[in-house]
Amino acid sequence: MFSNFDFEVVRRSLPYLFYEGMTFTVTLTALSALGGLIFGTAIALMRLSGFKILGRIAGVYVDFMRSLPLVLVIFWFYFLVPYIGQWVTGASRPISVGAFASSLITFIMFEAAYFSEIMRAGIQSISRGQPAAANALGLTYAQTMRYVVLPQAFRNMLPVLITQTIVLFQDTSLVYVLSITDFLGAASKVAQRDGRLVEMYLFAAIVYFTISCVASFGVRRLQARIAIIR
């Protein structure tokens, strides 16, 4: 059955697949995870703050983002951002936002909803005595969060955060709807051009699978180490 497969096409397109495609995928994943973590932490702090209105706003945002299919958000955002930009800046024409910027903003906003729930659980896992001790030493709310609570929450949640990032890594392939050349996009372009769909998609699957698997394995080892520290 494999006799009429041509894996030479994979070998020939490797530089393209990795230098262009994988670089894009990894960059998008890393920046989205970082941005999502920062905004997600802010949202988590809003939800846990004593201010009811802030908490409500954050809660609605999270629920809203989590009840939409990611691919739709990517799609709509790409078309809406130019107009939102126009409205915000008061420009006369829609702002042109590149596909990369648009997808990055989308992923950050989308991931922020998920990361915020993780960080919220992380913050709640810290005993109340910790912020009390920090406050008793004279640290302000912001300092208590920055130096005492968040570092511990982050450390405790690191395995879950990485697992979520692995999911994100796979989800970035959805930018194909904007015909962006991410890893899957690159594979798909070669596949179409050379008419080698099965080979290219098989190879793409193996690459995603391998990277995710290795990362998951790393997470499990990390989990064991954190369990020892605690």
Partner: peptide, 26 residues
């Protein structure tokens, strides 16, 4: 509060910081 020292039943040292950094942070 910085002028009022407090010691808790369950110590409440900051577990992610070394002993010396527990003393230096504040």
């Amino acid at each position: 509060r910085s002028r009022v020292g407090m010691v808790f039943q369950h110590f409440e040292l900051f577990p992610h910081l070394k002993i010396i950094d527990n003393l230096c942070l504040a």
